[in-house]
Design a protein around this nucleic acid. Structure first.
Lengths: 238, 238
DNA sequence: GCAAAAGTGTTAGAAGTACACCCATGA
DNA sequence: TCATGGGTGTACTTCTAACACTTTTGC
């Protein structure tokens, strides 16, 4: 990153990454904590991992760079899902002042258009340690605090997009599950995302017909009911 | 528009409008002709209706304004579909020089991120007169010339998006048809957009089951075959 | 009369929906 | 023994796909 000091920031365009994960029967979103010292008061707040782009940088690369800088996560497949450019999205002066300081920009920033990026991913142990090294954490989608800028509505928009996505490309859902998973887990993810109950017998029928779901020999252990079989997702069998 | 001279242009963000219509068995896109005089040579080229945004303007409003300025079309429902921000999308120096002149910007423009807007609409008589008053015209999607900037790939992207859209929301397709249309026309539009033959008897069955398609008493006249009934689309019956 | 599209049914298979009980396990 | 989810089948309905002939009209 030595040569980044020479790169020119584009103060009118940013990227913001919405990473969604699944854990303990609910959807989580990855947020980063930011601290700001002003008038001897330390304030802190949460926001999506995101940042202004450099003028010589592709949008997709910017999303990758920013995510890595703020969370350490590398090579996460994200896709653009919407541009947010409301003229009052920077209206909160605390947000604006923080942004100027963060990027060492000596003037007020009028209005930045941000390109939202989306990814579904499994929350595994390495991701769980994020909050130690990077001050990033997974938060339940139903209990996120007031975020900086318009990030609350960006998250809402992303969740709606995921609902549409899962109807059209149900395979996408496997990105949220651990490498080995039970039929119950898969059904639960569908139920949470589509926000409706799914009949377990009918789901079982569809589940068995998915050729990209491979049964393993392994079963659950230490569960207070009959142990469920584990399955894996085989993307080569789509 | 008197006070627009005071408005501040944001040279980093633009909007481009992809308006798609249907006529003579093919998809058309609305393009505007631009002329540029340089070294006593008049050159002309085509591009999508689009322009840089003002700093105090919502993206959606910018799309509406730009479309009206360049084509006279008002209140067209457009929705954002993708942001295009490749660093070399302004690489063609002719395009860049034209842009600077068009907006009276005294310096080279590095890289503009453009937000693509999409609309499907019927090409009726009023739209056909566009090319007289505004130097805008409908061009067959399969024979568009090299356009300015990356507009050729923006159009391609938009067409792909329409294909997806029609699968999920087939009602959208009625925006392309005239107010009264035949079953044959509707089938043809589906065939063109989905790029496949559709069995007419199976289509007929589905067609009859669409409660939002209302048969009219009127039929075709002067056709060299049995006259087809006209239908109208009733969006209240969705 | 010929070309061109209108208009129309049946059958078979696939997919979706509704619905209820016993089994295995840990606490 | 109780709570929890695992695991399973049938009947009905709906959707999809394949397939061909007669009618109307203008030329």
């Amino acid at each position: 990153m030595e040569n980044q000091t020479q790169r020119i920031i584009n103060p009118y365009v940013s990227v913001d990454c919405v990473l969604l994960g699944f854990e303990e029967d609910s959807l989580k979103v990855l947020l980063v904590r930011q601290k700001d010292k002003r008038n001897n008061n330390m304030t802190e707040f949460f926001k999506l991992p995101g940042s202004l782009i450099y003028q010589d940088e592709e949008l997709d690369e910017a999303a990758q760079r920013v995510l890595e800088e703020l969370t350490g996560l590398k090579k996460i497949k994200m896709t653009q899902f919407h541009a947010f450019g409301s003229i009052d999205r920077m209206a909160n002066s605390d947000d604006n002042i923080w942004l100027q300081r963060f990027h060492s920009i000596p003037h007020h920033i009028d209005r930045t258009v941000t390109i939202g990026y989306l990814s579904l991913l499994r929350i595994n142990k390495s991701y769980k340690t994020l909050n130690n090294e990077y001050d990033a954490c997974w938060m339940d989608i139903n209990s996120i605090p007031k975020l900086a800028f318009d990030h609350n509505s960006i998250v809402e928009f992303a969740v709606k997009r995921v609902q549409e996505l899962v109807q059209v490309m149900p395979q996408k859902i496997f990105e949220l599950l651990p490498r080995k998973f039970t039929e119950f887990q898969l059904r639960t993810v569908f139920e949470i995302i589509l926000n409706k109950k799914i009949d377990n017998r009918n789901f079982h029928k569809k589940f068995k017909s998915m050729r990209y779901v491979i049964p393993l020999d392994e079963k659950e252990t230490n569960v207070a009911h009959r142990a469920a079989r584990y399955y894996k997702f085989d993307k080569n069998n789509l």
